[in-house]
């Protein structure tokens, strides 16, 4: 009896410890987010309150209104710029890497190892180096300060991860399905179109979501290649806006909420599949 009780107690203690640790880590992860929301609903005088409180002292939507009406914020324009650039570069990346992912998953061919290793090594190349060369090239092609220039840069950064993830998804589709269909007389293109693509669709969507978000959030190249305010993407515009605002944290945090909600929602929707693809792609 005593022993069972003791073990119960020990288990209970262990559980409490684990919960406490997990709660501490969770607080570490979410307190900045809570603070973004809180600040965004606070009036200017209370943001400068030397005491910290977690509920806005006087709830207001003033910050949101001021951001949406501020000509320096250019939210609508920048949102469209981000959307155009991210969407086009993602679609192009997906079109070319889906084919490569399928090939890497299904065939052994000459140069496959070289390709695999190259895909790994490319991750080491500093973004600044690619940016310097691309900048010089884009300048020769008169593509600085154009969305096309940025799209080309994003295609270069999306290639490796997309190929990897897609290979992972195709690996998870049993090859038997294709073989059976081809034995039954279907030709390969039909099999790919009618059987493989529908099965791989969630994986392709998740890869697309990952690449899209990476491009949507990108800052370095966007801030370097696009220097005209009407071309800027959201991530550059918000930093620029902060320069105008001079630490008016209320509007900046309201802007942050507007910028982060679409990307966080997409992230959470695609999250499970994304992780599956990343792990499958990386561990093989």
């Amino acid at each position: 009896m005593m022993q069972i009780k003791k073990r119960h107690l020990a288990n209970f203690g262990k559980n409490v410890f684990c919960y406490a640790l997990l709660i501490a880590i969770t607080i570490f992860c979410i307190f900045p987010i809570a603070w973004i929301f809180k600040t965004s609903f606070e009036t200017p005088q209370f943001i400068r309150n030397p005491n910290i409180q977690w509920i806005p002292l006087k709830f207001t939507l003033e910050n949101y209104k001021s951001v949406l009406n501020n000509p320096n914020a250019m939210i609508g324009k920048s949102f469209m710029n981000s959307l155009i650039v991210s969407l086009i570069s993602t679609v192009i990346s997906l079109l070319i890497t889906t084919m490569a992912g399928y090939a890497l998953s299904r065939w052994n061919f000459h140069g496959k190892n070289t390709l695999n290793v190259y895909l790994l090594l490319v991750n080491m190349v500093p973004g600044t180096l690619i940016l310097i060369s691309m900048f010089i090239i884009l300048n020769k092609l008169h593509l600085i300060n154009t969305h096309i220039g940025l799209i080309l840069f994003y295609i270069s950064t999306g290639l490796t991860l997309a190929t990897w993830m897609l290979k992972g998804y195709f690996d998870s589709i049993p090859v038997d399905i294709e073989e059976q269909a081809m034995i039954d007389g279907a030709d390969r293109m039909t099999v790919i179109r009618k059987i493989i693509m529908p099965l791989a669709a969630p994986g392709i969507f998740a890869t697309g979501a990952y690449i899209f978000l990476k491009n949507w959030n990108e800052y370095m190249a966007a801030s370097t290649i696009l220097q005209k305010s009407e071309l800027r993407t959201l991530s550059v515009q918000i930093v620029n806006f902060m320069g105008f605002q001079r630490v008016e944290w209320g509007p900046i945090m309201a802007y942050s909420v507007i910028v982060m909600i679409p990307s966080s929602v997409l992230f959470i929707i695609a999250q499970k599949k994304m992780v599956a693809g990343l792990t499958a792609g990386f561990s093989k």
Binding site: I30, W35, T39, V236, V239, S256, M260, S263, S264
Partner: peptide, 28 residues
């Protein structure tokens, strides 16, 4: 889901937010 959140927000928003958290006058 809660623990995943830091991964989901744009890195620019993250950097600005932490700058606000580190604020020398009114920072949390």
């Amino acid at each position: 889901i809660l623990i995943m959140i830091p991964w989901t927000i744009p890195s620019v928003v993250m950097s600005l937010t932490w700058q606000w958290l580190y604020d020398p006058f009114y920072g949390l």
